[in-house]
């Protein structure tokens, strides 16, 4: 009982410290989880990720903005660094590989980085091509890594139109790949029109979108 209470206390500390972007407190709680022999997987998902979920909600409500969220993400990563080596590979969890990047001509990668974080946490193999990525690079990397999912991001009205060709090119080589697009100027309509399988609403919702994407992929895998 005391043990369960202590675990609850640590999970709450992890969650709250992510929300408060208190990196030191996250590190302290994560170390305690490891030292006291609690399950690291639970600590990540019921502690760190729960905190990030709350951050996502605050973001939606325009209580937090990008700077706050970046600091929360830093805190989450600090905890993840400590906990990850202690996670036992569980059967049945989401496994998968994803290629992601910001399209050519565009260097706005904050939204992409936040999405990446969630895929990292969820245990995906993330192949991050970074920003200003030429079309061929997406196609090559997908083939090379046999990833199930490709995520394209664009933040500018002047660069987003490049997504259309990338989607066509990837689908041409490998029709089974799922492609999701996101970024401020992109819309659900466009995703449909350009043949993408999914759409992430906007930079503001990057985190929520990432969670949805992970969930969508889970559903896909269960089909």
């Amino acid at each position: 009982m005391a043990n369960a209470e202590r675990e609850k206390e640590l999970l709450e500390a992890l969650k709250q410290s992510v929300i408060d972007y208190d990196e030191d407190a996250v590190v302290e709680a994560a170390k305690a989880v490891v030292e006291e022999g609690f399950d690291a997987y639970t600590a990540v998902f019921d502690g760190l990720v729960e905190g990030m979920n709350e951050v996502g909600r605050m973001y939606e409500e325009q209580e937090y903005f990008v700077p706050e969220m970046l600091m929360c993400a830093d805190s989450l990563y600090a905890g993840l660094d400590i906990l990850k080596p202690h996670i036992e590979q569980k059967a049945g969890g989401i496994k998968g590989a994803v290629v992601m990047g910001v399209v050519q001509g565009d260097v706005h990668d904050i939204g992409k980085n936040i999405v990446k974080m969630m895929f990292d946490v969820a245990g995906f193999d993330v192949h991050d091509l970074g920003r200003d990525v030429p079309m061929e690079k997406f196609v090559e990397e997908q083939l090379k890594t046999d990833s199930e999912l490709v995520l394209l991001s664009a933040m500018m009205t002047t660069t987003m139109v490049g997504m259309k060709d990338i989607i066509a090119k990837i689908k041409e080589k490998n029709p089974k790949v799922k492609i999701m697009i996101g970024g401020a100027p992109v819309s659900e309509d466009l995703a449909d029109k350009w043949g993408a399988d999914g759409f992430a609403k906007d930079a503001n919702n990057a985190l929520k979108d990432a969670l949805n994407m992970v969930k969508a992929l889970k559903d896909l895998q269960q089909q």
């Binding site: 325009q62 903005f65 706050e68 906007d202 930079a203």
Partner: peptide, 8 residues
């Protein structure tokens, strides 16, 4: 307005 808060 999508990146920083009104306060910032």
């Amino acid at each position: 307005g999508d990146l920083i808060s009104p306060r910032m």
